[in-house]
Amino acid sequence: MQFVSIVHEDPTAEPYDPAEDHIAEWVREGIERGFNVRGDRLRPVAETKTVRRVGGGTLVTDGPFAEVTELIAGYDVLECADLDEAIDYVSRHPMARFGAIELRPVWPLDLQADER
C-alpha cells in the first residue's frame, strides 16, 4: 500500500548535524527495496503560494496555508507492504532525528465507485 511521508522541521528535535545526514544512503535503500515511488525536498516558504477558488475567481496568496514554525521540508511517496514496514523505513530518514516524519496512508479515490 502507498504512504506519503511528510518531512517536518521541528525546533524541539536534535540540532541538525550535516555529518549525520545520510539521506543518500536512505534513498538508495528505498530504491533497492522498491519503497520509493518518488520524493524530494520542497523549496522554502518564501517561494510558497496558496491557491483558492473564491466566488468564481482564483485567489492566490503569498506564503503557506498555515503559519507554523514546524515547516514542511520535503515529502516521499512510499510503496510498502504495511504500516510496520513504512515506520521501520522512515525511522531511518535523517530528518526523523533532526525533525519529525508524518506518515499518512494514501486513501485511493475510486472514481468508478463514485459514478455508480
Binding site: M1, A81, L83, P105, W107
Partner: peptide, 10 residues
C-alpha cells in the same frame, strides 16, 4: 484496515 496495520507477530 486503513493504516495498514499488519496481522502478524512482529
Amino acid at each position: 484496515a486503513h493504516a495498514g496495520i499488519p496481522y502478524r507477530v512482529p
